[in-house]
């Protein structure tokens, strides 16, 4: 099996889906000749032409809104938000329109639209190229929010998103793009949206996370194993709707749960995970639920030491897991 990067998995999924189904097309800012500012759509313009790889005007609400219209016509658009931080002008189209179209038309109209958006910090992006935006959309029934951690999951879940008959927001961690590599089958496969995945089996402490933080957890778990601490790691993969069964099972497995997100702590996806555990696992817990997240400051600063202060790391996770193990 070939080892490819996280972003190569994005490109491969797009390419394969466009080859497989002529109704799939890509649209967004700089996705054409430039191949995307991160190169996620590299080579697609050359292979599929300007009709199916569309450089749009710089206007996020139109990128999503036009995508919705094309999806209602029966196509499968993949709309790129250049940075998830720039999604907010499109929030009304996502929340009021894409998410509610099936419901409000009583199943008459559907929006098979995928919205790809790079998120996350650690790339010296400052306040507006670093944010995690999932919590804004993670209480909107009608949407699905996918946030994969590995190249294998990226490819399988992006393909599933494009084939989904409901709107999907597909958040890609931009620091993972080139940092994370992994084995990915060359052929076609999909992974189920809405299903979490156990990334490491363990008995002492459960870590529930998603995105790049999953890798910090895996690194921390390796270290902790040397001290005899066994870590169980659940990767949510889809943060909305949550795989509540997997969350409850993972919490019960060890009775000690650390919830990790790069997003601001208050009202994050992990707040809902914590509530789910609290509702279902009262007599199974051996310690209070703990959360490790970004501080409740607006967003991560540009200056390197300030950014580092804001970000998660394997060291921070290792400490938090150790504390919980010793509780």
């Amino acid at each position: 099996m070939a080892v490819i990067s996280y972003i190569e998995a994005v490109t491969q999924a797009l390419k394969e889906e466009m080859e497989r189904d002529e109704d799939v097309f890509v649209m967004g800012e700089d996705v054409g000749k430039r191949g995307g500012v991160f190169q996620a759509t590299k080579g697609l313009y050359e292979e599929f032409g300007e009709k199916r790889v569309i450089d749009t005007p710089l206007a996020e609400s139109a990128i999503v809104g036009v995508g919705i219209g094309a999806a209602m016509y029966g196509l499968r658009p993949v709309a790129e938000m250049q940075f998830s931080d720039f999604m907010l002008p499109a929030a009304n189209q996502i929340i009021s329109e894409a998410a509610k179209t099936r419901y409000r038309s009583n199943n008459d109209w559907t929006v098979p639209l995928t919205i790809r958006a790079p998120y996350g910090g650690g790339v010296h992006g400052g306040l507006y190229h670093s944010q995690s935006m999932e919590a804004i959309f993670a209480n909107v029934p009608g949407l699905k929010i996918v946030m994969p951690s590995t190249p294998y999951d990226v490819k399988g879940l992006l393909k599933a998103s494009i084939r989904s008959n409901d709107p999907v927001i597909f958040f890609e961690h931009k620091r993972a793009y080139r940092l994370i590599k992994g084995e990915v089958p060359e052929g076609d496969y999909t992974l189920p949206i809405g299903k979490a995945d156990i990334k490491r089996e363990g008995n002492d402490v459960t870590v529930i996370s998603y995105g790049l933080a999953v890798h910090f957890a895996l690194q921390a778990a390796e270290k902790l194993a040397e001290s005899g601490i066994s870590t169980h790691i659940l990767d949510l993969r889809t943060v909305y709707p949550l795989d509540r069964e997997a969350v409850v099972n993972a919490a019960k497995k060890t009775g000690k749960v650390l919830l990790v997100t790069e997003d601001n702590k208050e009202g994050s996806v992990m707040s809902e995970v914590a509530a789910t555990i609290a509702e279902n696992c009262l007599f199974d817990l051996d310690a209070p639920i703990r959360r490790l997240a970004a501080p409740d400051a607006p967003s991560m600063p540009y200056a390197a030491p300030l950014e580092k202060q804001f970000l998660l790391s394997s060291e921070k996770l290792e400490q938090a897991i150790r504390d919980l193990a010793e509780y």
């Binding site: 139109a62 809104g65 995508g67 919705i68 219209g69 094309a70 209602m72 016509y73 196509l75």
Partner: peptide, 12 residues
């Protein structure tokens, strides 16, 4: 909000 949808239909 319907205006971009109409444009999307035409694009499709």
């Amino acid at each position: 909000t319907q205006n971009p949808h109409a444009v999307g239909v035409a694009l499709a």
